[in-house]
């Protein structure tokens, strides 16, 4: 990282030229960026290399790109990969939308109304998500069995059921996160709107929601990525393989170390990373620079 002004001649210290000033203040950031990109991306090069190698494996050895073949990518078509992509997108999107809406509503209530047990509930919500859920699969399974008898679409092997389970964690995980942000919107703005005769619902939807877009984007992203990567709950709930999400389906390719198909797995991963990247790029606009200047309580 010692790239600070390497080209600046010694005389420039006394009389900084425009160029060396540029190096000192801005220019050095480019070589550093290269380092960071190396740090971020070099492990992923192995994934790419494995995905292009028919007998690929992920054991990082040095023989990168020893063979280039798109066989693995073509082989994806022989699997249910694209079905899984569809399922994952549906489930992830539903989980994200639900998390954003329910979390925002709850955060608004906690931020704007004063009611009994408010602080207690807030701390409670935060602590709830620290529950170690490893043995909870028994309970989840039985619960869905019971629900499925009454409402078949909420039973085992239903995407809706999985979405509902994810929604169950929406409040615990997100209320606290959004609450702080809601607080940073000055309440004088609501007061003013109220005097203008706006109802609380109008204030929430028309005034507050647009102002908190960045945190909505963050929560949506987190919920989507969580649903995208989860395979513990999904594995219990989604039984038949045309209902699987990418995480379960692709994990099945490699779960048996004796027959692990790392090549096709890597190819799948490279493709599966695209939706998340696209989401990132889309939401980046809202997250970065989406906040109106001065809205943070000083």
């Amino acid at each position: 990282m010692a790239t600070t002004a390497p080209s600046a001649p010694s005389t420039s210290r006394r009389q900084p030229t425009r160029r060396s000033r540029w190096w000192l203040e801005v220019g050095w950031k480019y070589p550093l960026a290269v380092l960071i990109i190396f740090y971020a991306a070099f492990p992923l090069v192995f994934v790419l290399s494995a995905s292009l190698d028919e007998g690929g494996n992920l054991r990082g050895t040095e023989s990168l790109f020893s063979s280039i073949s798109f066989e693995n990518y073509a082989n994806l078509n022989d699997t249910l990969f694209w079905t899984w992509v569809g399922n994952t997108l549906i489930i992830g999107a539903a989980a994200a939308v639900g998390a954003v809406l329910m979390g925002a509503c709850a955060a608004y209530a906690f931020s704007r109304f004063r009611f009994q047990g408010r602080r207690f509930s807030l701390t409670g919500l935060l602590i709830l998500q620290m529950f170690p859920q490893t043995v909870a699969f028994v309970a989840v399974f039985l619960l869905l069995l019971a629900l499925g008898e009454v409402v078949p679409s909420l039973g085992i092997d239903s995407k809706i059921a999985l979405i509902c389970v994810y929604w169950g964690t929406a409040l615990g995980a997100n209320t606290f996160l959004m609450y702080g942000f809601f607080n940073s919107i000055p309440s004088e703005m609501d007061e003013a709107a109220k005097i203008d005769g706006a109802t609380h619902a109008q204030i929430f939807w028309k005034l507050i929601m647009p102002l908190v877009t960045p945190i909505l984007a963050v929560v949506g992203l987190l919920a989507f990525v969580a649903a995208f990567g989860d395979f513990i709950l999904a594995k219990i709930i989604l039984v038949s393989n045309d209902n699987w999400t990418l995480a379960i389906g692709m994990y099945a390719w490699v779960s048996d170390q004796l027959t692990a198909r790392w090549g096709i797995f890597s190819a799948g991963t490279v493709i599966a990373a695209l939706p998340v990247l696209v989401l990132f790029l889309t939401l980046q606009r809202y997250i970065v620079g989406g906040l109106t200047s001065g809205s943070v309580k000083g």
Binding site: L145, I156, K235, S240, A252, S255, D256
Partner: peptide
Amino acid sequence: VELVQKNFEDIRADFLAQVPTGE
């Protein structure tokens, strides 16, 4: 015949847990 595909390593635990539920 409904073939349910599972990871081989999961079958033991899932079979133990799910047979008693009737599922």
